[in-house]
Structure formats: C-alpha cells, structure tokens
Amino acid sequence: MFFDVAVIGAGMAGLSCAQRLRQAGYSVAVVEKSRGAGGRVATRRVQGTRADHGARYLESQGDAVQRLIEVLVDRHILKLWTDTVWEFRQGEMFSSPNSCYIAPAGMNAVGKYLAQDLDIWFGRRVQAISTTDNQMWHLSLEVTDDNLEIPQELIAKAVVVAIPAPQALMFLNSEIGLQSDFLDKLRSVEYDPCITVMAGYSATKQQDLSNLNPQWQAVTFRDDADLAWVGLDSSKRLESQQPVFVVHSSASFADRHLESADLPTVGQELLDRTSEYLIPWLKQPEWLQVHRWRYAFCRNPLPVSCLAAEGTLPLVCAGDLCGEGQIEGALRSGLAAANWVNSQLQNLPLDSSLNW
C-alpha cells in the first residue's frame, strides 16, 4: 500500500495534520494502535453509560481550540457544561469563571469529528521503520485487533510521528539515518502519568445528590498528594440514570501505583480519598473501572512547533511534546507538521485557516 504521507497516531496532532494534508490533495494513511480516534480525548462505554476518562472538557487555550469549540458547538457536538471552575485548597472551595465545553455523546466525539474522511488503520502498532531502495519509508505494522483485512505494512514518501516521545523512540533510531541531536531531543521529553477512576453509584444516590445540590460540576486539587481532579461525569449525559464520577490522580500518586497489578484497589484508594473531601458515599461505588495513562501530560515540551529530522527522508514529530503542550499545542503542532511535510513534497496550496 503506497501513500504520500503516513501519520502515526490518531490523536489531536495526528488528526489535524492528516486533515490539512488530505484537504490539500495528498494521499494520507493514519496508523492508530487503538480502536478509536482522539488519543487522550477519550470516552469509555461502561455499565450502560459513557465516561470521559481522558480529556475532561475543552476550554479556550488559544485560537486553535477556540475555533474548534465554535465549530463543534455550531454542529451540536459540544455544549457548555459549566462557566465556573472550582478548586479545593486548604479545606475550602474557591471558584473562578471559566467556560468548559463537553460532548454529551462522550468527548471522543471530538476525535470522530476530526477523523471524518480520513483513511485510518485502527488496531495497528508500528513495529519498525526502514527505507526502501527507491527512497521511500517502509512501515511494518503489528496487528492489535482481529481485523486482518488491512495490510500489515505500508510505504510512504513522508512520515509524521504524532505519538508520545517514549513510544516513538521504540522504532526511531540511528539505524534509519536519524541524527543523534534529533534523538536526544526526543529522549529529553518527559511525561507525567495519571490514573483515572470511573465510578458508578446506586440510582438512589441521584436523589441524595439532588438534595445536596453541590455548586460544582468538577473540582481541581492543585496541591493534593493523591488527587488532581474530580468530576460529576453523569452531569454531562442527557440520559443518565445514576451518578457517575471520574477521578484523576496526581502525578505522584500515579508514579507510585503505575505498575500495580491490582488496579481496583488503587482506584478504591482514590475514591476513599475523594470521599474525605467531597461526599462520604463516594467511597462506596456500585462499580468502578481504572485506566492508566502513562503519558498523560507532557512536562517539558520542546520549544518548537514540530520536530523535523534532518539528513534523511521526510520525517517529523508532532504533538503536545512541542510548543505550548496541551490540546492547543497538539493541534498547532499537527498543522505545523503538515506545513513542513508539504514543503518537502509538492508545495501544494494549503488552507492556512483554522476552519475545522
């Protein structure tokens, strides 16, 4: 299978890059190891409902995210969740104005929207990259699902690597002509992990929650040793029949428990901690699920919009490892990577607007 461009990773950076190149006229294949688009803007189906276990909501971080919010609100994919954010510190709640937008169908609706019309190879992990005799990139792919209809290799003129740096370094090395300076920059990028708990409660607790009538939809814990954020996820859903909460751990808590073989116990520990601060019955869920994010937040993004390799065939890294970090940085990095790839190939006219 031959393409102009292979994009590795269907997160925000990979999707924004692939869309800009596709719209310019390039043939693009996106390779994604999971079963859905969006990366850490993720939703899980659980116990007859949905829970956003990745990105909590979209908020204006810059022009790229703001324009995306406007487009998705206009298309009834996003809606305003709350215009106030709360922070718990020193035993008290403090509020500040901030508009937070969510997708009632789940935050992965954002990725689904950006993935429209793209050729995405789900359930494929890149095992190795090499060069062909006629100066192309050759990608060898590992199957991570049961879909054997998609080929396990592809050839492309250019490659965009839009995944966390440690994952990229599993197949990027000096053997394929990458210079030590490029690889050293990738190795310098560090990430903070996060453990996320999704917990559901008895439908009878819905009335109790109504009686409590908490002012908050979500609470941030800036300096807590264990907690980073707690959200009433079921308040995002139109059809919710029971309270569902999502809890994000602190980086230090995740570091301590990242390799635990007993994730339910780890999740229960976070719920116990949450119940001490917010609502006592939060430590008694009907069900809970736990997800590990090894590369939740880039700690030290590189001061570039994208990281291009020199002295080899066109290859560039993009994502929240570049620029401002967060979703804004990922979107802008993907667009910058598309511009760079275009400069190495045909220099086709690109849409420079942020019209998602």
Rank of each mutant, 00 (worst) to 15 (best):
G323K: 03
Q19N: 11
V31K: 00
G311K: 01
I195M: 07
Q207L: 01
G123A: 08
A251M: 11
C17N: 04
G123N: 07
G319L: 02
A203L: 09
A165Q: 05
R256F: 00
E87S: 12
N355V: 10
S16M: 09
L172S: 02
V85A: 14
W356N: 07
L72C: 09
G9Q: 01
S99W: 06
V290N: 00
A218I: 05
S202G: 12
D226Y: 12
K112Y: 08
D255K: 13
L354G: 02
A18R: 13
A105W: 07
C17G: 05
E269M: 15
Q326S: 14
Y101I: 15
Q152V: 10
Q289K: 13
G267R: 11
D255P: 03
Y101A: 13
V244L: 08
Y295E: 03
I176H: 12
P97Q: 10
R187W: 00
S34N: 06
V71S: 07
W81K: 04
R237N: 04
N211L: 15
T265W: 04
A254D: 07
Y277R: 09
A10F: 01
A115V: 02
Q242R: 08
V247I: 14
V230N: 00
W86G: 02
A203P: 11
V46M: 13
C100N: 12
K185G: 01
F182L: 03
I195V: 07
V65I: 12
Q268H: 11
A168D: 00
D351V: 15
R22W: 09
Y201S: 05
T196E: 06
G325I: 08
E59G: 13
T196I: 08
S180F: 02
Q215A: 15
L78E: 08
G311N: 05
L315H: 09
N342E: 02
I77Q: 06
I69L: 13
Y26M: 04
Q207W: 01
I155K: 07
A168C: 00
V71C: 08
L118N: 04
E259R: 07
T196D: 05
W216L: 07
I163W: 01
L263V: 09
S174H: 14
T274S: 15
A254H: 06
M1Y: 08
T196W: 04
S249C: 08
D146N: 09
T84W: 06
S96D: 06
V316G: 11
S234D: 02
V244W: 12
S188W: 03
V126N: 00
V28H: 04
R40C: 07
Q116Y: 07
L313C: 06
L270E: 11
W293S: 05
G329F: 06
T312I: 05
P314W: 01
M198W: 12
R56V: 06
M93G: 09
A254W: 04
